[in-house]
Design a protein around this nucleic acid. Structure first.
Lengths: 191, 191
DNA sequence: CGCGACGTTGATTTGCCTCAACGATTGTGG
DNA sequence: CCACAATCGTTGAGGCAAATCAACGTCGCG
């Protein structure tokens, strides 16, 4: 099992003792996903918090009208789960699936709770993680409400240049909240 | 200085010793705001994290086109600041002002850092706070992208029934990302 | 009392959607 | 490895949601 990226990720915000590292590693298990495999199914309970070692995942929700909206993409070294389901013990409102074949490290709720309760330094780590996630989501709200689709597309290209090359246009459109057809006309108009 | 709401708010997620409570209280100062008074000006550094004791505040940003977007409202017992500016030491991208006259308790960055470093239980408290904030913002993103304005308005009424009665329609429209005129036609069409 | 902000209503315009048709690319089973 | 199906991206026509602009009545405030 490869913990290199995980420990690197943690080290960006906190420093940990050997004991802390060991415990941290002990609460994860590995999971391999084939392309298009579903990691978390909408409507099911969400028991895990995932760290992406390899590959790309996508979280999306489908509303009553059948419209699909991409909530987030997660590539190498990103954390992903349905935080609503995970933290509040509810059934999830999103589906998470692998876009390409992927390898993730997962910890369950008990592991997470023990971790933060026993080692305050990890409480700090996740405080910072959620703080940053909050900032990002808030900026996305502002962008979505204040900018036209063309600008949002440009921002997306700037923010996730590598992702943008890998992902099908369809999914980018669903992340931006526009139809694939319209994204297509945007692209031709931008040059 | 009145710490009742503040301590109540904290007690919802953690329990604290007398010493912790005392330190916590010691890092806040009080600030009174008149109606329409600006608490935080877009473009300025953001040095404080605020807790609302009384009144209602509003955070909004203005884009290059002059369009105003309401990021959040904060009434009694809500926390508010420009987290981007506060956490990353950048100039803020939003303005926060009092809608009605208000009383807030503010702590500065050093107070916040000392608090979470010295007392892990507060690290936990803010971890939970940001976790919830992240969940809320993510749900708002999904709603904004997947639902038409009429539905978003109905959700707003349900989620913030008291706020909805107090706020000018204009500001609700700017929170929903629609024009005041269109909100007006929505309202007449809903009954 | 009078001014300025607010909410309403209507006419027109625009950004984006839906639907449909078509090539190109990808994946799959024979 | 080829043939076919399925999915994807593109383009165009027509339609709808929401914006803009303008006019008007109302109300709170100086």
């Amino acid at each position: 099992m490869n913990f290199e990226l995980l420990l690197q990720n943690v080290a960006q915000h906190i420093s940990t003792s050997k004991e802390e590292k060991e415990f941290f590693k002990s609460i994860f298990t590995i999971r391999n996903l084939k392309k298009k495999e579903v990691l978390l199914q909408m409507g099911q309970p969400c028991n895990y918090f995932y760290f992406v070692n390899k590959g790309i995942l996508r979280a999306y929700s489908i509303n009553e009208m059948g419209k699909e909206t991409t909530v987030m993409f997660a590539s190498q070294s990103w954390w992903i789960t349905d935080m609503y389901g995970f933290a509040k013990n509810k059934n999830t409102t999103v589906t998470i699936e692998a876009i390409h074949s992927a390898e993730v490290l997962q910890m369950n709720k008990k592991g997470f709770e023990d971790l933060v309760n026993q080692f305050p330094v990890f409480e700090k780590f996740y405080r910072i993680l959620f703080q940053n996630a909050y900032i990002r989501e808030q900026q996305r709200v502002i962008q979505t409400l204040s900018q036209p689709a063309a600008d949002r597309y440009r921002s997306f290209l700037k923010q996730y240049p590598t992702l943008a090359q890998t992902l099908p246009q369809k999914q980018i459109a669903s992340y931006l909240g526009i139809s694939p057809e319209f994204l297509s006309t945007l692209k031709s108009g931008i040059k």
